[in-house]
């Protein structure tokens, strides 16, 4: 099956995209500077977007870049710059005690999941068996659109409501009434 569906341009694009994603992922965890980590994250996201394109999921690729590269990582950078945490952090003290073992456990679970999926699907251009064949070109955008607004309408609206609730909650928490005393004490300390 692999030999039939994969041409050599596909292979080159896949290798380039995969290399971008993996190098970026390694960069995120190895760089000391949070801004460099955020840059590596952009590299990973772009790599994944190219992989989406290769899978003919054009709309998904566009949204990946618009939402993740264009908005979310910009927000990360905004927070990093605004709070001035762009110097070396001391990571020997852990605020959450169990987070390291938990991280190892979740890595193992994810890897097992990916390997289980790969054992049933094709290797080089992703698991078409797992995801199903996708219509290419403009039909792809229409397919995604009609799926989101008909079949999965409830899930879509629920996600939208969840995001709105999160935003309102964050605003409420951040703009609680504080008394003038606590502010001026904070400044003296």
């Amino acid at each position: 099956m692999i030999a039939m569906t994969t041409t050599w341009p596909d292979l080159i694009v896949f290798i380039a995209a995969a290399a971008m994603a993996v190098i970026g992922a390694l960069g995120i965890i190895t760089y000391r500077n949070p801004v460099h980590s955020a840059l590596s994250l952009i590299l990973t996201l772009l790599g994944v977007a190219i992989a989406f394109l290769e899978q003919e999921a054009h709309f998904l690729a566009a949204v990946q870049i618009i939402v993740y590269c264009g908005a979310i990582v910009v927000l990360f950078l905004f927070v990093i710059m605004f709070l001035g945490v762009d110097n070396k952090e001391d990571i020997s003290v852990e605020p959450l005690v169990a987070q390291r073992p938990m991280a190892y456990a979740s890595v193992v679970v994810t890897m097992v999941g990916i390997l289980a999926m790969l054992s049933r699907g094709g290797w080089s251009t992703g698991a078409q068996v797992a995801t199903g064949a996708s219509p290419g070109g403009a039909e792809n955008v229409q397919a995604v659109g009609s799926a989101v607004f008909t079949t999965y309408l409830f899930a879509f609206e629920a996600t939208a409501a969840l995001l709105i609730i999160a935003v309102v909650g964050a605003v409420l928490l951040a703009r609680r009434d504080r008394t003038g005393e606590s502010i001026s004490e904070g400044a003296d300390a």
Partner: peptide
């Protein structure tokens, strides 16, 4: 490309990085 005008939005999203960085 099939995504057409979405490319404009994607690129204007990416062009922020030049200024920020």
């Amino acid at each position: 490309p099939p995504i057409g005008i979405l490319l404009l939005l994607a690129m204007s999203g990416l062009s922020v990085y030049g200024v920020i960085l």
